[in-house]
Amino acid sequence: MAQSIIRTDKLVFRYTTEAGAAPAVLDGVSLSVRPGEFVAVLGHNGSGKSTLAKHLNAILLPSGGKVYVDGMDTCDEDRLLDIRRQVGMVFQNPDNQIVASVVEEDVAFGPENLGVPSAEIRQRVDAALAAVGMSEYARHAPHLLSGGQKQRVAIAGVLAMRPRCIVLDEPTAMLDPVGRKEVLDTVRLLNREQDMTVVLITHHMDEAAQADRLVVMHDGHIVADDRPELVFQNVDGLRTLGLEVPEPVALLYELRQAGVDVPLTALTVDECAAILRKLLA
C-alpha cells in the first residue's frame, strides 16, 4: 500500500543481551496506518506496545522485518531526520521531554534543529501553541504548568516540526483525570480539524474507545485490529488477555448474560443510555 504513512512488515524485535538473544518483544507485527487515521494501540504492560511505538520513528530499529515511514525504510540512516520530521513522538513523562525553560523556546526546539529560518519558526511556534490552546502560556516556565498543560506543550513542540503523524506513547499515564481529558481532547481536535494522523498507545479502555481504529496487542502480536465498537464486542476474548472493556460495554454485556437482548455497540455513557431507554420504552 503506497498510500500508508506508516507500514510495518513482519516486524520482529528482540533485545540482545550478553547471554544471547532474548525472547522477541515484537513478533511479526504487520500494521499499516493511513493518512488522517486515529489509531489506538491497546495492550497491558509487556505487550510490546511501547516498543512498537519506538520503531515508528527509528528510535529502535527492527531485528527482523521492515518499518516504512512515508515509503522510507527506517534502517536508512541518511533519511533519519526526514523520518523523525514526519513522525513526531510524545512520551509518558511530561517533565523529561521539555528541553527549554520557557514554553515558546521549547516549542521552537524542533524547528531550530531542522534549520528553519527564524521568522518562520516564530509563525510555527505561534500556530502550534494556538492549536493546543496554550498561546497565553507562551512566556511561562514549564515547571509551573500542570501535567496536562505540560503534555500539551510537548504536543505543540512536535506540531511545530509540521509532522504528518503524531505517535503518543501513554501520554496520560502520569496525569490526573482533568489532565487526561485536556490531552485527549487536544489530540482528537488535531485529528479532526487538521487531519493529523494519530497513533495513541494506551492502556485506558475509554481512551482507546475514542479512536477510529483499535489495535490490540498481546505478547508481541496483534490480536485484534478493527473499529473499537467491534473489538469490544469480544468481551470474553479481551478478558482472557487481562483487558477490561469500557464500562458501558461491560454493563450491556452483563445484561446480555442475564438474558436481555441488547447490542454491545455502545462506547459512551450516552449511547448506552439510549439503548437502555429504547429497551424500557
Binding site: N57, I59, L81, R84, R85, G88, M89, F91, N93, N96, Q97, V99, E104, E105, A108, F109, G110, P111, E112, N113, L114, G115, V116, P117, S118, I121, R122, V125, G157, V158, M161
Partner: peptide
C-alpha cells in the same frame, strides 16, 4: 529519556541549527 525525546525532535548537534530569537 530526555536524550530520546531530543532525538525525536531531530536534535543532531549545533550544525545547521537556527534560532527563533536571534
Amino acid at each position: 529519556e530526555l536524550a530520546t525525546a531530543m532525538e525525536c525532535r531531530c536534535y543532531h548537534g549545533g550544525e545547521g541549527r537556527t534560532r527563533m530569537k536571534q
